[in-house]
């Protein structure tokens, strides 16, 4: 097989708090049809056979929906294809002889676990603060008892598409997770089912966001550029309105 030869500069870090560094590796026979993660698989198979420590990276579905994969590729969260996750990236965009830098999603709120793997449990804690409708199984009214205008339902779905990967945080100069928070707050604010807890939800999710060490939004717009699900920064504007509304109410 004659495929591409590439040089990879990969962030290696043994564990949380350990010093890390970019290290160079060569891979060859890379087919343009491979996905980016399959290219890393090739490297890891090679490292294991050489008796070296393979590169740790998060992944699971490998089709852009679970939000597990989280690579900064040549300085950009999820790489150069907009609207795609790291696992969606194909090697077609590269040429023989290219060098690619691969780093983890960096942010104060996302400590490194190992190599390219980070701890995003802060996102779960933000969700615990209110990213839901408080309804017990068995207590729901008939689904058609509350009609929802088509446009509202569609807009709610645009926000609900967030996969919680954290690329927005990695791309933001302030390491803000506002796009993530706003996606959930907006989804539920747009639907009547989310109405009763609307104010409390916005306030407590934002409070937890700040507690986790994520920064403030200063409208840099980097988040929406890398969001693999095209959640728009206008979502943050809606969050701000929700916050104001809630502050008046409480």
């Amino acid at each position: 097989m004659s495929g591409m030869k590439l040089t990879l500069k990969i962030w290696r870090q043994k564990g949380p708090g350990a010093p890390g560094e970019l290290r160079s590796y060569g891979v060859q026979d890379i087919s343009p049809d491979m996905s980016f993660l399959e290219m890393l698989d090739v490297l890891n198979e090679q490292l294991i056979k050489l008796g070296e420590d393979p590169v740790a990276f998060d992944h699971d579905c490998r089709e852009g929906i679970c939000g597990m994969c989280s690579l900064v590729i040549d300085g950009r969260a999820h790489g150069k294809d907009s609207g795609k996750t790291s696992c969606d990236m194909r090697m077609r965009g590269y040429q023989d002889g290219d060098t690619i830098a691969i780093e983890p999603f960096r942010a104060k709120g996302f400590p490194v676990v190992k190599d390219l793997v980070v701890d995003r449990s802060a996102f779960d804690r933000i969700m615990q603060a209110g990213g839901y409708v408080s309804v017990n199984a068995g207590s729901a009214p008939e689904a058609h008892s509350l009609p929802v205008p088509y446009e509202k339902a569609e807009a709610a779905m645009d926000h609900a598409a967030c996969i919680g990967c954290g690329a927005c945080v990695a791309a933001c100069p302030n390491a803000s997770a506002m796009l993530f928070v706003s996606a959930k707050v907006s989804q539920l604010a747009l639907l009547p089912q989310g109405g009763p807890e609307r104010a409390r939800r916005a306030l407590s999710m934002l409070e937890q966001h700040d507690k986790e060490g994520f920064g403030n939004c200063t409208n840099e717009g980097e988040c929406e550029k890398v969001c693999p699900k095209s959640v728009k920064i206008s979502s943050i504007a809606r969050l701000n309105r929700e916050f104001l509304r809630a502050s008046v109410l409480y």
Binding site: Y132, V133, V135, A137, G138, S139, A140, P141, E142, A143, H144, L146, P147, V148, P149, Y150, A153, E154, A156, M157, A160, Q187, L188, L191, Q193, G194
Partner: peptide
């Protein structure tokens, strides 16, 4: 049927018709 009721109440944004129904 109870599943659909429950998920709707949770705010799952199911596809809807123009009349607002599922």
């Amino acid at each position: 049927n109870a599943i659909i009721d429950h998920c709707t109440a949770q705010g799952v944004p199911f596809g809807r018709e123009y009349g607002g129904l599922l």
